[in-house]
Design a protein around this nucleic acid. Structure first.
Length: 572
RNA sequence: GCGCCCGUGGCUUAAUGGAUAGAGUAACUGACUACGGAUCAGAAGGUUGGGGGUUCAACUCCCUCCGGGCGCGCCA
């Protein structure tokens, strides 16, 4: 595909003093509206050096590049040079690229040979997988997919929260009040009830906390009774988590959670000691970070057991040795900003230059109408319930609309789950939000089902266009694009052309919503095109060209959705 | 108290420092005997929390105030 931006930047820089192609490329913009052109070059910044008024410079540049075959028209408007690409060249370039690459359209190779670790989801054992967990799970999965699509060798790690004092509490609680049958019947809810009871009783009996800490110390030492119970809790919880991952269609390469590092922490403590970073304070071992404007980091408690910052450091060291990552990404709530700043700094102080390759990708908090999610207080919405209700709602709509699907169960699942994931990835990840059933079960407007519907509609037209579509896609160089010069067709093609840049941008910002919004833009442009022009016309050449464009739109929506972790059914 | 983040039409939200702040939703009007109405079109809705500053140009950068969230030692 022709890199139009590169070509334009080259022409402008060749005709402008003291402007490199790279600078010109950076300055190129996409105008607010297609009526102003495909690209715009603002000349304000050149004014000082050239000692000329910006509009004058714009006029001169426009004059000097006007005759290039690539352009249909070049208009100076105020300080801007507005560039209109030659429509036929542009359309042909885009359509043949997609006809050729299909599922690989937008795929990149900048990541070739580079290993990227994406740690995400990471639920805590024996606690429910609730609505708050969807963010890391879905954002992390999308970031993984985007990086993989750009050629990076990614490793998806689920850093299960399967260690720490909480398990001491659980063990104590189970021994006091628990029984095996109840737990096996409904593991997470039962274990959670013990945990809740533990906290209630500990309010009046401080010795329980001590008992719990002792149990964790024993677990950390590998004592048989504690270890066996812990393993049992873990296995049962994992089974429940797998059910949710199954619904979401998410898999991991590694489930090495916190406990995996239990035998790797002594080494970290020793390293910190050797570097003289550890200090004793009130019986605990800390790293003082005052110099860096941060609160001290607790490495070990006064009873000698470790804290999660120690485990995160141990995990990072292990991952560097095991994977030799190019980037080590953590998709974890913004509540833990300080935690990550602290241990990234500690890694740096340990002399590891790869500290700079560790990235924390924060996201905002999910709360409920009643307040913050709290499993202990019973303010909780289970993710599995959300997914199942979305599937149910979809099924109702399918029945209501009497949609012709090959498999109602599969379609309801694809669309219902897609709605939840798409919603989650639709705005900037840093924003907090309040969970709402109404919003998650709304399938109109800028939603997953809307994108999927547009895809299904495009699929339907392509099926009806059968032979013509095949012909166009198999010999794209023969497509006669002269019928695609209408504004809605051109706008759709422009958005399709931008897709590879969008993916790159999303990766750079670690922001899946960039892709989500682009999918919406493409779907809207497609629906507008679909209204404005009839695709299946009598004119064979016109029909083929339009089908090629429909195919391109369908392809971008499908690939975009796939990167988000959403399926794109052919019918719905 | 200190630190970080957020503040854009009623609601949800977009905008590499660049042209007239762009969508969705709700309420209102309209469009299926030609390709899928989970759609499309139309009209309405904004002093981008307030005030300063930097800049040719500020939703965007800086300062300050207000409102909200999160974090700040033995949980993770």
């Amino acid at each position: 595909m022709i890199d139009f931006k590169e070509q334009i930047a080259g022409l402008i820089s060749a005709n402008t003093e003291n402007l490199t192609k790279e600078e010109a490329r950076d300055m190129l913009e996409i105008p607010a509206s297609g009526e102003m052109g495909d690209y715009a070059f603002p000349c304000f910044r050149l004014a000082k050096a050239a000692r000329k008024a910006p509009p004058l410079i714009a006029a001169e540049i426009a004059e000097s590049v006007r005759s290039a075959a690539l352009f249909e028209r070049v208009n100076p408007v105020g300080a801007y040079v507005n560039v209109f690409l030659a429509k036929e060249v542009f359309l042909k370039s885009v359509l043949s690229e997609i006809a050729e690459k299909r599922d690989d359209y937008g795929r990149g190779d900048i990541g070739r040979g580079k290993k990227v670790i994406v740690e995400f989801s990471s639920p805590n054992i024996a606690k429910p997988f609730h609505i708050g967990h969807i963010r890391s799970t879905v954002i992390g999965n999308a970031i993984n997919n985007i990086y993989a699509f750009l050629g990076y060798d990614t490793v998806k790690i689920n850093h299960i929260g399967d260690y720490g004092t909480q398990f001491g509490k659980m063990i104590v609680a189970y021994r006091k009040w628990g029984n095996r049958e109840d737990v096996e019947r409904d593991p997470i809810k039962t274990l959670l009830s013990y945990y809740t009871r533990f906290h209630a009783e500990a309010e009046n009996d401080a010795s329980l906390e001590d008992e719990a800490r002792l149990a964790f110390v024993k677990l950390e030492k590998g004592e048989a009774g504690e270890t066996a119970l812990w393993r049992w809790f873990r296995d049962m919880s994992m089974k429940e988590f797998e059910r949710v991952y199954g619904l979401l269609g998410i898999e991991f390469d590694s489930y090495a959670g916190e406990s995996f590092y239990s035998d790797k922490m002594e080494r970290v403590v020793n390293m910190l000691n050797e570097k003289g970073l550890l200090e004793e304070s009130e019986g605990a071992q800390i790293v003082n970070l005052e110099k860096y404007g941060m609160a001290p980091a607790l490495i070990t408690k006064k009873d000698g057991s470790t804290l999660y910052i120690t485990r995160d450091i141990a995990a990072a060291v292990y991952r560097k040795e095991r994977y030799d990552f190019y980037k080590n990404i953590y998709v974890v709530a913004s509540q833990q900003n300080l935690h990550f700043q602290q241990w990234f700094k500690i890694i740096e102080l340990l002399g590891f230059d790869w500290a700079k390759d560790c990235v924390h990708i924060p996201f905002g908090l999910v709360s409920l109408d009643e307040g913050a999610v709290s499993t202990r207080a019973g303010r909780v919405v289970f993710l599995e319930d959300v997914l199942n209700r979305a599937i149910e709602r979809t099924r109702e709509i399918i029945v209501e609309k009497n949609v012709n699907t090959d498999n109602i169960d599969a379609t309801a699942r694809q669309v219902g789950i897609g709605a939840v994931i798409f919603q989650e990835l639709s705005s900037n990840r840093i924003k907090d939000y309040t969970f709402s059933w109404e919003k998650v079960l709304n399938f109109d407007g800028e939603t997953g089902p809307y994108a999927q519907y547009s895809h299904a509609r495009a699929s339907s037209v392509l099926r009806k266009g059968g032979a013509s579509a095949e012909k166009a896609l198999n010999a794209p160089e023969k497509i006669d694009v002269s019928s695609l010069k209408g504004e809605s067709a051109c706008e759709l093609a422009r958005l399709i052309y931008r897709f590879p840049e969008i993916i790159f941008d999303a990766a750079e910002k670690y922001e899946p919503s960039v892709v989500t919004r682009h999918i919406v833009d493409v779907a809207q442009a497609f629906n507008k095109f679909y209204r404005d022009e009839r695709v299946l016309t009598e004119d064979a050449a016109e029909k083929e060209a339009k089908l090629a464009l429909v195919f391109a739109a369908k392809q971008v929506i499908k690939t975009g959705l796939r990167l988000l972790g959403v399926e794109a059914p052919e019918r719905m």
